[in-house]
């Protein structure tokens, strides 16, 4: 294998299709969720610690900043999960071609948007 093969990965010179955006966001949401696990574990810890801790968690859920952070975490979780389910569907051989991939990406975005909205309704 030639060591110095030319590589074109200058993203700014490449026009990205919708599938590329869905893919990179899957990656970004995954990295963000690694930090999100700390928030989710903290919530679980607090809510299970005692009746007082549970009530405190309910109070926390009513402060705007905490609501926003929790909604962001849930949004990341929803995005990563739906995009992941799309991967599993494609693993099963459905929507693997160019047209199917683009259609799947659009469906995933629509489902994600609805679920993130619903999560917002639940948090607020």
């Amino acid at each position: 294998m030639k060591k110095n093969r030319p590589v074109n990965l200058d993203i700014s010179t490449i026009k990205l299709p919708i599938t590329a955006y869905v893919s990179i966001l899957h990656r970004v949401s995954g990295v963000a969720l690694f930090a999100g696990v700390a928030i989710l574990l903290w919530m679980l810890d607090k809510s299970l610690s005692s009746a007082a801790g549970f009530a405190e968690m309910q109070d926390t859920l009513s402060s705007p900043l905490c609501q926003f952070i929790i909604w962001l975490t849930l949004a990341g979780l929803i995005y990563h999960m739906v995009a992941g389910i799309r991967h599993l569907i494609m693993d099963a051989g459905i929507g693997e071609d160019l047209e199917g991939g683009q259609k799947g990406a659009k469906i995933a975005i629509a489902v994600i948007a609805v679920l993130i909205l619903l999560a917002g309704v639940w948090v607020w």
Binding site: V37, A38, L41, L44, D45, L48, S49
Partner: peptide, 13 residues
Amino acid sequence: TYVVWGIEILWGV
């Protein structure tokens, strides 16, 4: 740390 913390939460209930 996540795993150990999680186990502590689960078995501390």
